[in-house]
Every structure is written in structure tokens, then in C-alpha cells.
Computed example of a mutant assay.
Amino acid sequence: MMQKIMAPMMDSFTKMPIRDLLQAGGMEADKADALNPATIEEIMAILDPNFRKRMDVMLNTMMPALGQFMGRFEPDMREGMAEAFASRYNAAELGEISAFMKTSTGAKFGSGFMELAADPHYLGKVQAMIPEMMRAMPEILQKSVTEMGTLPKPRTYKDLTPAERQRLEALIGLDSKKVTQ
């Protein structure tokens, strides 16, 4: 399922003009707009003619491996999902959901629910959104940067009291004689 989701997203990403990506990364809009509308795909076709194949290999090897890895955690994830349902629905509502899931329509819905995220109809909408999201990122990030600017700066080791230094040293296993001030 992840391959079905990631492949179109990566494809959409490589078709984005690099200037959009650079602007999302913080380049000023006027400087980014002055750049040519070259895409990652166009540039990589020159630098690495096998770029697309490399991306396919990566997706086709990583996703099954991640699936195996995640499979080890499925029992915990099921438990977490049960807890999430229990925190959102009361006993009567859970009973209604359970009754629905026992119907043929409920069983069909339940068995394919997670796969909806990989449906081409849905993925097409997600793909169409990515370039716009990348254009919006500078403004979105700026709000975070502005808000972070209102917070006090993190303390340095020199700012800590002797007790805080001792606690930090114990937590991360530092030898106080070797700590640079």
C-alpha cells in the first residue's frame, strides 16, 4: 500500500520546478521566481540518466522491508487503534460500529478502509495539492519561525546551575572532568 502512495507522490515531487522547492526551503520569492522552471526530473535526466530507475529500486526494496518491519508492531498498533476507538466512542456507539462491521457492507468497508489512502482517486487529489503546498510552505514556516522567536533561547551548558549540570551529566553519561565549558 505504501508503494501505491509513495510512487505517485515522488513522481509529483520530481515534476515540481526546483524554484518552487527552493522557495519552500526559504529562498525569497523574487529570487526563486527569477530562476528557470527546470524540474528535478529534467535536471536528474542529465546528471543521472538512471535516476528514475534508482527511485523505483528504492521504493520497490524499501517499502516491502518497511512492511516487514511494521508487521512486527501490528499487535501494538491494533491495541493502539482499539484504545483510540475507545477514547472517541462510548460503549453504545462501539456496539453500533461493531454491528455495522458484521454486515456485508461493513465487512467490505473494514477490509478496504486503510487501502483508501492508496486509491488513485484520492492520490490524484493529493498529487495535485503538493505543488500548492510547497508554494505555501514559506508562509507556513515563517509563522513557526516568528512564534519561535518569542520564546527564550535555549540554555547552554554554561547557563546551567551546578545541580543541573550534574543531573545532565548523569543523564547522558558525561564525565564532568571532560566537559568543555
Rank of each mutant, 00 (worst) to 15 (best):
Y122K: 03
L174G: 01
K177L: 02
E28A: 12
T14A: 06
Q127V: 05
G80Y: 04
M77A: 15
S12P: 02
R52P: 01
P37G: 05
P37D: 11
M27A: 12
G110M: 14
A45T: 03
A34C: 07
A107L: 11
T150Q: 12
G112A: 12
L35N: 01
L47Y: 11
R135Q: 14
Q127R: 09
A128W: 06
E83M: 14
K153S: 15
S111N: 14
R167E: 15
T150L: 07
M6S: 05
R54W: 01
N90R: 02
V57M: 09
P17A: 05
L47V: 10
K31M: 02
P64H: 04
T150E: 09
Q23P: 00
V57N: 11
M6G: 00
M44W: 00
L22H: 00
S104N: 13
K15Q: 13
P49T: 10
M129F: 15
E164G: 11
A107T: 13
G71Q: 12
A170D: 08
L123G: 04
M134Y: 10
P131T: 06
T14S: 07
A32F: 03
D30W: 00
M133E: 02
G95V: 12
M55F: 00
A107P: 01
R88E: 07
R155H: 02
A38C: 01
F69S: 09
K143G: 06
E96G: 07
